[in-house]
Structure formats: structure tokens, C-alpha cells
Amino acid sequence: MASTDLVVGDFAIEHAPGHRMRRFFSSAAFWLTIGAFLLFAVFPVYWMFVTTFKQINDLYSLDENPLIFNLAPTLEHVQFLWDQTRYPTWLVNTVEIGVFTVIITLLVSIPAAYALARSRFPGSGTLGIGIFLTYLIPPTLLFLPLSQIVVGLGLINTRWSLVLVYPTFTIPFCTWLLMGFFRGVPREMTEAARVDGCSRLGALFRVVLPVSLPGILTVVIFAFTLTMQEYVYALTFVSEQTEKTVTLGVSADLIRGDVFAWSSLMAGALIISVPVAIAYNFFLDTFVKGITGGAVK
């Protein structure tokens, strides 16, 4: 993956050359600050990790140092999650919803983004902005009427309700991103293809899409992770255990009244967080470029 290395000189802190002591302290201050930020960012994940693999007695003992394993780590909570809960089903549901949402999103967003990035027709600017602005409309404004629509379509309590609704936020977002990527393909390249014998649509498939493949991949990853992260619609539409997504299932079904199965909960959280975190890290640079590319054209 191509990555832009974000380095900008060191104009943040001026240090007089030659002053070893000062440089040492400024470097110490630098690492302390970085360390503090890192601790804040990463500690919850570390705690997720520790909780997942701790034995129950260790976890709920108030005397021992909770930050380390006082008893040997165990896989029993992961096992429990896998065997005694619906977690595997939730995982499958999550992936299934993600895949279908991504497919719908690409089918709708690619043509829209291509038209907005490359064709001039009356109202194209307004329509583009309109699509973009719908991303601002939050689930919390729409979940009430949408729940009625979902009921009306007979999709309530099924994962298909989410497949139907998730594109409402992935489409605006991905159209915007894709516009940025498509604008990065020189206009002449599509024109060359059209002179060479492609229709407008042909130029999209034979030239624009292959050339913007990294962008498309980024969009796929981000659309997918957006659906994985969604919580409000899932909470509103789905209460059937077997239809739930991971985030919903973990946060709802592993809590029985006041009894929290913390270890299994954290195990479920960890399993879903790690792949998402890795995927984001791979595509972050392209993603940022896409956002700014759309804004700065």
C-alpha cells in the first residue's frame, strides 16, 4: 500500500543546537507526552485484552494488582463465547450485512460518483452537495420513521432491515470519497478511452475503475467497517438473538440484568476490534487523501 509519510520538519519545538541538556529534556518531554497520549489511547484495549484472558478468580479479586495476570491466562471465556453464546452467528450476520451493504453501496455510489466527477449536467453540483449533506442526517433523527418502514416491509427483527438501511449512510459517504478518487484520474484518460472506442460507461469500467482500484478498495473497507461499527439502527430494528450483529449482541445479550459476563464481553469486543484496527491502519492514508481529495478537488 502506497503511504504518504507525513513528515514536516521539526518546526514544533525549536532547540538551540549544542545544548545537550536542553535537548535531552526536550526529548524526554516529547516522549513523556507521547507516552501519556498513548496510554490514554491504548489502555482500554489493553484492559480488554487482560480481561479476556484472566481467570474469574483473578479478575474479581480486589487485592491483587489487576494490571497483570496473577493466575495463568485462560482461554475459557473465549471458549464460552464461542460455545455458549450466539457469538458465531453474530459474526456471520455482521459479515453478511457488511458484504451486502458494500455491494449495494458500490452499485449505487460508483455510477453516482463517476457522473458527479466527470459529467456536466444541469444541477449536478446541487445534487452532489445534496447527496453529501444527507450524511449529516443522523440515525437518531430517522430511526423512528425508519422503524415503521421496516415494520411495513416485514423486515423488522431481521438482518435484512440493516442491509436496507445501512446504505443510507454508506452511499453519501462513499460517493463523496469516490468522487475524490475519480477526480484524481485525469479527464483526458476517459476521453482517450472514448475516442479509442469505449462508450461513457465502457470508459468507467475499462479505465477509471482499474486505475482507481486502491480508492475502491479503501471505500470497500470503510463502508464495511462503518456497518460493523453501527449500533443505533441495529439496536432499534433487531431484537431477535439470531439476527443480531456483533456490536449489538455483545453489548446487549452478554449482559443479563446486572450480571455482566465481562470476560466474554471483552473477548467478543477484542475479536471484532482487532481486524478493524488492522484494516484501518492499512488504508488510512488513502482514506485521508480521499476525504481531502473530495474537498479540495
Partner: peptide, 9 residues
């Protein structure tokens, strides 16, 4: 074309 517009892929 001025910028040649070769297909990079």
C-alpha cells in the same frame, strides 16, 4: 492528448 493520457494499468 497534451498529457498523453496513457492507461497506467
Amino acid at each position: 492528448f497534451q498529457n498523453y493520457a496513457l492507461y497506467p494499468h
